[in-house]
Amino acid sequence: MPSNPERPRRITLVRNGPLLVEGPVEVVDDDGAVAVSRRFTVAICMCRRSRSYPWCDTSHRNRSKLPSDRAAGADCPAADRSAEGDQR
């Protein structure tokens, strides 16, 4: 959806989730690399965990823990990775 002075581009902040931006968009990273998406809305990763960065791949989601993870406590690698919700 093209933006214009009467209809500015809408960007939506999602708590513990991606930034939703009306497409098409170009995202330029620190090194000048450009990622392009023509989708009607694009979801831009805010947690930096996405393997499709800069696009969201739902990696921000919380994970349930196995009972054995809880028993293992801090020694368990899964327990070291705090959920995105805890980082904010």
């Binding site: 999602v14 989730g17 991606p18 939703l20 989708r39 979801a43 499709s52 969201c56």
Partner: peptide
């Protein structure tokens, strides 16, 4: 579908 459905889920 990884990328598209991450958007569709939000919408």
């Amino acid at each position: 579908h990884v990328e598209a459905d991450a958007v569709h889920e939000q919408i």
